[in-house]
Amino acid sequence: MDRKEVTSDLVGRLEDFIISAQRGKTVQLQTIVYEKYIKEVSRSNATDDMDLERDRCLLVADFTLIRPTREKPAKVSKAYMICPVNENEIDRKTTRHIANERLRMDFSRLRKAGIEVEEQFF
């Protein structure tokens, strides 16, 4: 199915917001950025019977469609970076800088499509 043939209000990625805006729909987005803590589990190469667990942090942005009706807003969540929980200060700043630059690129794409977006950064 051609992506441009999709007419549903279901949204799964930022590109869907862009397509809606290019079709003439008014699109306004609210952005919320946050850290999400996860546990990464992997199998050790040295011992097949032991799982290795590491705490990780995802830097995530939620883009929520603001609609004038009372319908439930559509939302896209996108992870911009994954990092260890216990990073040192220099690595933490570098990680946030990279995530913010990726966010800036997405904000630019959305604005070029005519989408009003509330910008927030990590």
Rank of each mutant, 00 (worst) to 15 (best):
F121H: 09
L10F: 11
A46K: 13
K36R: 08
D91S: 06
T7D: 10
R3G: 05
Y80M: 01
L10P: 07
N88L: 01
N45D: 15
I115M: 02
K39T: 14
K4G: 05
T26F: 04
R54V: 12
E40T: 01
Y80R: 02
N100R: 05
E40K: 09
A21V: 01
E118Y: 04
I90S: 02
I98C: 00
V27P: 09
E119G: 00
E118R: 11
K78E: 00
V60K: 01
E5S: 10
R92M: 14
K75V: 14
R67H: 06
K93C: 06
I19A: 11
V117A: 03
D91E: 12
G24T: 07
T7L: 06
L110P: 00
L29F: 04
E89L: 12
A61F: 05
V60T: 11
R104P: 05
V33L: 01
L29I: 00
Q30C: 06
D55F: 14
Q30I: 13
N100W: 08
I38R: 01
G12D: 01
N86A: 10
P68R: 10
E118W: 07
P84W: 11
T69I: 00
F17G: 00
M81V: 05
R92Q: 14
K39V: 14
K93Q: 13
L103Y: 05
K93M: 12
A79L: 02
A61Y: 09
K36H: 09
I66G: 01
S77A: 06
V117C: 05
E71D: 10
S77E: 02
L103G: 05
M1L: 02
M50Q: 14
I115H: 02
S42L: 08
K78G: 07
I18Q: 07
E116P: 08
F121R: 00
Q28V: 03
N88C: 02
R109D: 12
T69E: 15
E53A: 14
Q120A: 11
V6I: 14
L58W: 12
A74V: 11
A74P: 00
E35A: 08
F107L: 07
T7Y: 09
F17K: 10
L10R: 10
A46M: 11
F107I: 04
R43D: 02
S8Q: 03
I82Q: 14
K25E: 15
Y80T: 08
A99E: 06
G114L: 08
I90W: 04
K75W: 04
E15K: 10
Y37L: 03
R102D: 00
A99I: 09
S20R: 00
R23E: 05
E116G: 11
F17H: 10
N86G: 04
E35H: 00
T95N: 08
S44V: 03
F121L: 09
T47E: 15
A21D: 03
T69V: 00
Y37N: 03
